[in-house]
Design a protein around this nucleic acid. Structure first.
Lengths: 110, 110
DNA sequence: ATTATTAATCGCAATTTTACGATAATAAAA
DNA sequence: TTTTATTATCGTAAAATTGCGATTAATAAT
């Protein structure tokens, strides 16, 4: 059908998936890299850094913003985007916990 | 158009995005949790644990498998799935590096 | 006041994802 | 050998994603 039966899963599963989904496109990783690289946060020079149109980049920014990973503040006629520290760390934490919960199964699974 | 201009991005950006995308659905997080929980790896009892049909779960398993995060070995008429240690750690590493590359921008970005 | 610059949004098209039932395919059990 | 259990795959439908050009909105510059 196309839409997830989101209700059926735990809050944490949904949260982790939401963060991961936001990271699930090369363009958005590239955007985040630009934002991470320049400590001072940047505006729409991001567009110049990416091989995509302005509208497409804007849409990717929107998705990152909706996941909470970044925020954008208006500064004159430009908009300044940057990592949202709190949410970034939350994503780091929740995904980190998931990854760390793996303990090599010693012998022979599969 | 629907498909990413994947070629335009770096290998690493594509790799990270691929891992993240595989994690980008609550059902797949739930599946991984089942796999992580039971150290010994499990087969299609996963289906029983999820609020989705057999075919849907099978498809999610396929996507996790294609991303390399899990593997499935045939055991009689059952199939035993488990985390792929190597790839799991690679995903942990690459995503970890991304998250850690954030250094709080001290003063006032945005 | 008019003109440029910047960024968001709208509308559209192609593709992908999500989901399911039904159908294969495979192997164990009877 | 026929039946049963397990899992993958096919076909289909709805919805979401990706992408772009064109338009709008808002601010700065002239």
């Amino acid at each position: 059908m196309g839409l997830s039966k989101t209700e059926q899963f735990t809050e944490e599963e949904i949260l982790i998936a939401r963060f991961a989904k936001a990271l699930g496109h090369p363009a958005r990783i590239a955007i985040l890299r630009v934002l991470l690289e320049r400590k001072a946060c940047i505006c729409g020079d991001i567009v110049d850094e990416l091989p995509l149109s302005q509208s497409t980049v804007s849409q990717h920014l929107k998705e990152l913003k909706e996941a909470g990973l970044i925020q954008g503040d208006i500064d004159g006629k430009k908009v300044c985007y940057c990592i949202n520290e709190q949410v970034w760390k939350q994503a780091q934490e929740t995904l980190g916990v998931l990854f760390q919960s793996y303990t090599a199964c010693g012998s022979s699974c599969c």
